[in-house]
Each structure stands twice: as structure tokens, then as C-alpha cells.
Design a protein around this nucleic acid. Sequence first.
RNA 1: GUGGUUGUAGCUCAGUUGGUUAGAGCAUCAGAUUGUGAUUCUGAGGGUCGCCGGUUCGAGCCCGGUCAUCCACCCCA
Length: 456
Amino acid sequence: MAKPSLPQGTRDFSAAVVRKRNYILSTIRNVFELYGFQPLETPAMENLETLMGKYGEEGDKLIFKILNNGLNDPKNADKAKEGFEKMMEGKNSPALTERALKYDLTIPFARYVAMNHGQLTFPFKRYQVQPVWRADRPQKGRYREFTQCDADVVGSKSLLNEIELANIYHESFVKLGLTKYQLKLNSRNILTALAELCGGADKMIDISTAIDKLDKIGVDKVKEELLQRGLTQQQVATIEQYLSISGSNVEKLAAAEKLFTGNDAAAKGLAELRYVCNHCENVNIDIDFTLARGLNYYTGVIFEAKAPADVKMGSIGGGGRYDNLTGSFGVPDIAGVGISFGIDRIYDVMEELSLFPDDLQIGTKVLFFNLGEAESLFAFKAMQELRRSGISCELFHETAKMDKQFKYAEKKGIPFAVIIGSKEIETGNAVVKNLSTAQQEAVAVNQLSLFFHNKS
RNA sequence: GUGGUUGUAGCUCAGUUGGUUAGAGCAUCAGAUUGUGAUUCUGAGGGUCGCCGGUUCGAGCCCGGUCAUCCACCCCA
């Protein structure tokens, strides 16, 4: 037998980790619900056709494809061989694969909206918490299976939605203790304006991906990359001017306004940012004109949530507005805006900052000691009584030395021990020991439930 | 997809220019006064040295390949 192992980039989650993850997820879910969002779940796999072409060329390569069943059936052999030839040319073939693991939650959501738009009430606000899969090479903060946690509003062009989503980020992060998170804000319209000013609309992607790296590689490298991507010295100089905009949000908006005088797209983008900023007073919004975001379907305001600056983690969430979510599924004119929480990364950040509450790990509250055959049966009855009243407890599985039973409780983080031996059966009083303070007291067996309910 | 790092006991790691039967700490289990967690002591179990091949009288160590891991790039959460 080969040693058992896990596929690259996937993880098991042990009890302690699951509890912490659930803490994050339920915190965020509660905020979503508070804002009137409804849950949605979609299958782990989608038709490959649904996903292909939605994430750009790079994204398509990272989709996990599922091999068709029955390829070894002789009657499929020719088709399968043909499909294999196509695959070697870098194309997909339905003869070989027609399903894939979902790559994000947005496209399956779009597919759902397109399929059900007749039945949905718009604006439709949904949240979705599910795993997604990417065939990326794993590294710090990057996994091949990870959980996404999205909230989207579709069927509304109101900027109030952006304001709500910014507030959802704020409330969630504050509740999790990440008070020093940063919420970067930009508008795709401003990037469009920049492209118009420097080489035309077709340079938009080149410019965006280059300037997005500013804080990572510095101005000089960005300029180098822009030149490499075919921009002229003069255009690069304009972009440098754009990148040098700094100050408070108000100052940045004013500076950009000056730079883009007379440009319609810029005026629209700046108006969006100004509106959102003006109505998000408590949110840690930071206008960042270098923010681009990879996904090519964003059309308006874009968000990126970053971990507190003292943690090396970068993005812990992102989102933005899109004009035409369902267009590629044959349903035009459904606009929307959404955000996503990177909960695996939020986990890592919270771990690094020790932000998880201590009491998350208490599962079993009381351990009944097993001090003999008759004693254990007596304890079992008392324990069942306690369980009926809602206290989580267990009886040590065999008669053993107390030392061993104490150690078991200690390792499992069980806060209380109930000791019932022959003496206790006689008197009807159990010994209850608080394992963290080492204090113990006698409690009548029929009063245990009351005793523990008063402890919590 | 590109580049690099590291693979020795359950965990963390030693292991000399290549030289007998591969070690330590922690952890586990048993025992040291049969109803109170510590400490200490004694003992035990546990390794195809990631895998395959090569060089050599001899390989955990050198060489080639391969797999896994972590890190960085591309891209992204």
C-alpha cells in the first residue's frame, strides 16, 4: 500500500480548524442575512461550455476538467481519439470532457439567473458560500480547493448597492476583529479614460495589469513594463502622472478630475467614486487609482479588500460592478454588482493576528469519569439526564486510572470533570471539578443540570 | 506553465572527506502506593533514510531521473 496522501493544494480540516472556519463563515453569513441577501447553492460541477471563455485565456487554463465516463467503450474509441488529437492542439473536446469543477461562484450564479430570470424577483440579492477549484500551483495563501463567499445584487444599477456592499465588508471585518483592513476602491471607467488618453481602448488591459503591480514592483518597473507592452514615452509619462496622484480621497478625486478634464468616461467614474465615498463615512475606503482587478467583466466600481498592512497577505476579498452578467447566456441587460470574501486567506490572517475567540474550541463540556462497572452505569444515567438538558458531555470509554481520564479531558479541552465513585453513589453527591482552576465541589446528582446551566 | 527550496521515527530535527547494527528531543504505550492532572525514574514499540536507477568493495551522504513539499513569478481569493 502506498502512503495515503492528498491531491496537491487540498487540505483536511480538523475539528479545531472547522470550528474557526465556521466562526468566520457564520459571522459573514449573518451580515449577509442582515442586509437582506438570500442563500444559493449550485453544483460542484458545471458544463464545461458554461465556464469556458469567461475568465480570459489564463483562467481557462486553470479550470479543472472532468474526464468523460465510458471513454474505454469500443464504440466511443474513434471519437475519443479524435478528441485527444484536439486536446494536444490545446483545444477542448466534448468527446473527452464536457464537465468541469466550478472555478468561481459568479459564473454559476449568472447561469442560474439566466435560467431562472422569469421567476426571480429583481433586484435579486443572493449570497453563496461554496468551494471552488483552480488548477493553479499552490503557494502561500493559494490553494487548489478553496471556499469562496460571495454576495451579489443583480437587476439594479443603483449605486446604493455599492454602498451596501462596502458596508458589508466593513461590518464583517470589524466583527471578525480585522478593524485595520483596507478597502480599495476604483472605477473601471477611470481606467477606460486612462486608456483613451494613452494609446486607445485596446491598451486598457495592458495598462491595467501593469499599473496593478505598482505597490509590488515600484514605478520604474511599471514604466518598463508599459514600454515593453508597446506604449510610447509620452504615454508612459502621462500614466506616471496618473500614478503619482496621492493624498486624501477628496484630494485624489480633485487631482484626477484635473488630469482627465473633458473626458466623459473619467467624469462618470469619478462621480461614482465620489458618491460611494460620500455615503460610506465609517468604512475604511481608500481610493486607489492603480487598482485594476483581473476579471475582465467588471465595468464600473471595483473593490479590493486588503489585510491589515502588517500582515503579508494582500487581497482578502474583491468585487465590482458588471453591466452584463448574463449576456453570454442569452439574457441581455441584467446588470449587477458583487463582492467576494477570500475566507481561506482571512483565516490565515486571523490566525497570524490571534483573533479567534478562545471559547470556540469547547465541544464537550463535561467528562464523566469511569471508575468501575457499577459506577459507570450510574454515571451513564446521570450523563443522559444532562444531555437531555442540552449539555454536551461524554463518559470515559473504559474504566481507567484517574490520571489517564484527566489527561483525556485536558487534551480535548473539556472544562469540567464529574467524578462518581462508590462513595458518591452512596451519598448521591457527585464531585464536580473545574479543570482549569482545579477547584472542586460536591453537587447532588439530580442537580447537575441546574449546576451546569448556571455555569454557562 | 517558469524558476528555486526541502524530503531521515507520529512531530521537530542531528547524522563527520562515503565506512560496522541510522540517532536525539518531544509524543505514544506499559510500569514505579489501586480516588485527583505536575515532576521524576524505568522500560517498550515505532524507520523500504520520498521513489527508481547509476558510480563504488561499500551510499542516508556523490550523480541522473522522478514524485511530493514549500517559496517566488505569471495570474489570482
